[in-house]
């Protein structure tokens, strides 16, 4: 009977337990790192039907965000411009560029250009653009430096924890309302000045970002 299990099998249960622990640790770290919007969403850069270059139009020409996303101050939804907005200039400039063919076709037919949505919160999130931009939350806080992007890329995670970071400490992120669409603006007083002014804005504008569930979920 003594020969049924060899001697090395004595240590086996312990080894298996240790291995299971290591495996569990690896799985937990893996899920923490990968199963979050910081991994799944950030860096998403879909191919668009027209290679609209924000870095040129905004960075070089100096278009204001609202030239195209014109409803952002009044509406919860920051609109994608109609083809007529593009044609404001492109009926004069680069009128025969093959890259602009979808825009011209849309302008002529009224059928929308099939832009691919980059930033998309879950359907149970009710994010309102207008309340944010009218209270000094810059576009750059959520969308990154779009003025330097050749192709729009998902820059921030837009996860709930990330939203709450700002809702809990709004003074770190709000700026004078006239600088909201100036994506390169940083507080001239650095971090300290930002918080000082931020606290002032929070008080003056009576900013009270909701932290309850129903603030964003209905």
């Amino acid at each position: 009977m003594s020969n049924v299990f060899p001697k090395w099998s004595n240590a086996l249960p312990l080894k298996i337990i240790v291995f299971i622990f290591i495996l569990a640790a690896a799985i937990v770290s893996g899920v923490t790192y990968y199963a979050t919007p910081s991994y799944t969403r950030v860096g998403y850069q879909p191919a668009q039907p027209v290679l609209y270059d924000h870095s040129f139009h905004v960075g070089e020409l100096g278009l204001d965000c609202r030239y195209c996303h014109s409803a952002v101050e009044e509406s919860g939804h920051a609109n994608i411009p109609a083809a007529s907005t593009c044609m404001s200039c492109h009926s004069t400039i680069k009128t025969d560029s093959p890259l602009l063919e979808p825009v011209r076709a849309s302008f002529a037919s009224g059928e929308p250009v099939p832009w691919v949505r980059v930033h998309e919160t879950p359907d149970y999130v009710y994010f309102n653009h207008s309340v944010h931009v009218n209270r000094g939350v810059s576009c750059v806080e959520c969308h990154g430096k779009v003025n330097e992007m050749e192709i729009v890329t998902h820059d921030q995670s837009l996860s709930m924890g990330w939203c709450l970071d700002c809702h809990r400490n709004p003074e770190e992120h709000i700026r004078p309302v006239d600088q909201v669409t100036n994506l390169d603006w940083v507080h001239p007083g650095g971090k300290k000045g930002q918080i000082e002014d931020g606290l002032k804005f929070v008080e003056e504008w009576k900013i009270n970002p909701p932290q309850s569930c129903s603030g964003c979920h209905r």
Binding site: T36, S38, Q45
Partner: peptide
């Protein structure tokens, strides 16, 4: 994290 990709984001817990 943050690698540029054209693949649509995977929704890990798609709930609703």
């Amino acid at each position: 994290r943050g690698s540029v990709t054209t693949r649509p984001p995977i929704e890990v817990f798609p709930d609703m």
